[in-house]
Amino acid sequence: MTMPFLSIDWTLVVQLINTGILFLLLSKFLFKPVKAMIDSREAEVSKMYEDASAAKEQADRLQAEYAASISGAKEEANQIVKDAQKRAQMRSDEILTDAQTKASAMMTKAEEEIAREKKKAVNEIKDEISDLAVMIATKVVGKDLNTQDHEQLIQEFIDGAGDLSWKE
């Protein structure tokens, strides 16, 4: 008895063996190199992603450093401006104080000069008045006064004239 379902066809066996040999050959010469190439490309892509990630991190770090540097530079510039303003204010105060001191000294000197000139003018007027008083007294009395009488008349006249105020 033969079984029709299990009949072995040698062509089928040969085809199976050929398929197995073809699979082994393809596996050795095609699948392994293709798999190696795919693994290599996958490694390259992974390395590219890692490099890009590292570059992004470095860029972020450099950006943060740049921002900190800019902030520091702005603070330093503000401090320089404040220091310059302080120095300018101090110099301005020094100049004003010096000018006030010089003006005060000039006023004091002017007042002293005015007082000296006033005293000089008063003395000149006293001398002229005393000369006029002597001349008038000589003409009125008709005689020369002695030194003592002369001094007494001058003093009386000056005392009387000292009460008058000068108008400018």
Rank of each mutant, 00 (worst) to 15 (best):
Q63R: 05
G142H: 02
M106H: 13
K139W: 07
G160C: 05
M1I: 06
E156H: 10
S27D: 10
V141K: 12
D83L: 05
A77E: 13
R87F: 04
K47S: 15
A77R: 11
A161E: 00
N123L: 11
I21Q: 03
T108A: 08
T147E: 13
F29E: 00
S130V: 07
A36G: 08
G20N: 09
V141L: 13
P33I: 01
K74I: 07
E113T: 03
G72L: 07
T147R: 09
T108N: 11
I80N: 11
A43C: 00
I125T: 15
E44Q: 10
I70V: 11
E57P: 00
H150N: 15
Y66A: 13
I95D: 13
I8G: 01
L30I: 12
S27N: 11
I154P: 02
A161P: 01
L62G: 03
S69P: 00
T19E: 06
D39L: 07
D51L: 14
M37V: 04
K56L: 14
M48Q: 10
L16H: 07
V134W: 11
Q148P: 00
M3V: 13
F29V: 02
A43M: 07
D98K: 08
V45C: 01
A67R: 11
A67Q: 14
K28F: 12
E94I: 07
V34W: 11
A161R: 03
E124M: 04
Q148C: 00
G72C: 01
S165I: 05
I158W: 10
R91C: 01
T2D: 07
A64T: 06
E50D: 13
N18F: 13
I70R: 10
P33Q: 04
A73K: 03
A52Y: 01
H150A: 14
N146W: 10
K82D: 14
T101Q: 12
